[in-house]
């Protein structure tokens, strides 16, 4: 069963890598660095905006700004940039799909991205629902501080794993 799944992933990777755009990126001298630059700019906005929210949840920065005010201001940047990061990252991936699939740091990065998504979903469905009660608190309640701390740690790890891919 496991082997069948692995060979399925291998076949999907081979198929992605054979797409014309993937071949083009792999063979061009400048497409990869250009797309990579877009990926860096996008991830900078994703991680920057998320960290600014996380540190407010932790009660470290902007403690006099309401939590909802900060989130409403910064979340559109997160989502717009995340979309750009996924598209540019997908294109980078396609150029060497099989190699990245087998790369441990790439795998860890995807796994931690999933954990960051779960952490955010849990926070939105649970701890964030009664934000009206603690919106102006300098130090938000424990559940919000944990969500912020977990998010910040995961995103720092995601950046590190992402950078490490280039050194494998």
């Amino acid at each position: 069963m496991l082997e069948e799944n692995l060979s399925l992933i291998g076949r999907v990777c081979a198929w992605i890598g054979a797409q014309p755009f993937a071949v083009e990126i792999a063979e061009s001298a400048w497409l990869f660095p250009i797309i990579e630059s877009i990926h860096v700019l996008a991830l900078a906005l994703v991680v920057g905006s998320i960290a600014m929210v996380d540190l407010r949840l932790l009660g470290v920065v902007a403690v006099r700004t309401r939590v909802t005010e900060r989130i409403n201001h910064l979340l559109p940047y997160t989502w717009a940039a995340f979309t750009a990061a996924v598209v540019s990252g997908g294109l980078l991936f396609s150029s060497q799909a099989a190699t990245y699939c087998a790369n441990i740091h790439f795998q860890l990065k995807l796994g931690f991205l999933a954990l960051a998504g779960i952490n955010m979903a849990v926070f939105h469905l649970a701890g964030y629902r009664d934000v009206a009660k603690w919106d102006s608190d300098i130090k938000p309640p424990g559940s919000a501080r944990i969500a912020g701390g977990v998010s910040l740690s995961l995103w720092v790890a995601i950046v590190c794993f992402g950078r490490w891919i280039g050194f494998d």
Partner: peptide, 24 residues
């Protein structure tokens, strides 16, 4: 060998802070 990727990772995190701030 781990120093370069580690320091570059911190460098990227700081880039994130500057770029997000300037953009906002």
């Amino acid at each position: 060998l781990w120093v370069v990727p580690a320091v570059q990772s911190v460098h990227i995190l700081a880039i994130a802070a500057v770029m997000t701030s300037v953009w906002v």
